[in-house]
Design a binder for these strands. Structure first.
Lengths: 246, 246
DNA sequence: TAGTGGTCTAGACCACCCT
DNA sequence: GGGTGGTCTAGACCACTAA
């Protein structure tokens, strides 16, 4: 059990401190609404500077584990806020977090002329004419959950095959491993719609049933829009959760 | 035009720097994907320490205005990411952001025995038996947008009257001004449902129409759950937007 | 090699809270 | 007055990128 900071460790000190403090909170050593040691006490306890302490605490605050009150102290958040908020996740990660086994059935994978709506969302320059269209039925524990249509603006020369997708499952894992593309942010809109006959068939619900429509634009770490993706979720099998902060 | 930092200003220096840099970005002085001055250049340009520069830049990053690449520089985000996205807002603020005039029709304001679902969401201790129930039809430019039901666990002695609500409009403004309660975070879930006859009547849609159901738990700066609120949105008049980061 | 962001130190003073 | 978090300085070294 390492509960001291090792200056020779590969990991930065503030990150080691985050790990130590998180462990104590999750082990219940400090109860919700109880004060943890002050920043100056943590300085002494772990032999780091106050800047480093504040870097660690700042991360814990953004993760929802603790909160600070000016002039009073640093406190452990109630359990409900300790649970990690929804971050930017792929469908697969999302399903795993919900305790369901993610699956997919690929309906189409093709290079297509980019529709105008997609051109705008991906901010395509005029010289880019085509994008990759990927349509899949996504499942959780084998049951249809959503109908997903992706439009991808991959870097020149990059390709994507059915085999890769079937083998690896997650598209984002392929982008990361093969092309070193990391996702940094996404803008998402949600609205209500009703199932067309085709959608109803694929999702195994009656036509006209209410669905949740999600539209996402995904941005790389270089803030290039790389994907526009729609997911039609079965209204009875999907709840969307998000944490808002001020 | 103040584009230097005033050490005697009430505002902290990093915040003044944020304001200056944001103004330059929004004025188009630095175009999207262009590099802004390096941290060491900003140190000299504005006569502050690198720590202060990094505090300012860190804020701009969290607000989506710029991004950094290790070893390369700090760059202006594309316009779509510059638009600050949804933070924790009240219905009124939400409507104003969408360019609609918020309104309300109060259906009920009463102290009621807390339903079990509400007890759990607000983590009520056994000695608290009642909460305030507030039911309102919320409108945008006079048109019904949502049916909102709030359950409030106000501090002992605090009250809330129809007059206050009608005069002030926003509940959160009252909490802030009268009781110095600040909201810090919210957990929200979204799902699809269909309108019951009563809901349909109030929202002026046919019964059975699809609706977007939002359920929120709101936390104060001391991380006490203060409100559980459901809003049933008309599916045809409301889109929900979020920004996710990683 | 030079320039960039990432981490870290050892201080300091201010603003706020409580007794 | 003493303790807390909030802001700030003037340095330093490391890790990464590009010419």
């Amino acid at each position: 059990m390492s509960s001291t900071i090792n200056p020779n460790d590969m990991l930065p000190r503030y990150f080691q401190l985050v790990t130590i403090l998180r462990a104590k909170i999750e082990a219940g050593e400090w109860q919700p609404h109880a004060a943890i040691p002050s920043e100056r006490q943590l300085e002494v306890l772990y032999s780091v500077s106050r800047t480093t302490v504040r870097q660690a605490v700042g991360l814990l605050i953004r993760q929802g584990l603790v909160y600070q009150l000016h002039g009073k102290g640093t406190y452990v958040s109630p359990r409900k806020l300790q649970k990690g908020l929804v971050e930017l996740t792929s469908f697969s990660e999302d399903m795993l977090q919900r305790g369901l086994q993610p699956g997919q059935r690929i309906l189409e994978l093709a290079e297509v002329e980019a529709p105008e709506q997609v051109r705008q969302h991906l901010e395509l320059s005029p010289d880019i004419r085509t994008v990759i269209r990927l349509e899949r039925v996504r499942t959780g524990d084998g049951q249809p959950i959503g109908l997903q249509t992706s439009y991808l603006n991959l870097p020149a020369g990059a390709t994507l095959t059915r085999e890769q997708l079937e083998e690896r499952g997650s598209l984002y894992a392929i982008l990361q491993e093969k092309y070193n593309i990391n996702l940094a942010a996404a803008d998402e809109t949600l609205e209500v719609t009703v199932a067309t006959p085709r959608e109803a068939l694929l999702l195994e619900v009656p036509a006209g049933n209410p669905l949740l429509l999600s539209e996402r634009i995904l941005w790389t770490n270089e803030r290039r829009a790389i994907e526009f993706v729609k997911i039609l979720y079965r209204g009875d099998r999907y709840r969307y959760t998000v944490r808002l902060t001020r």
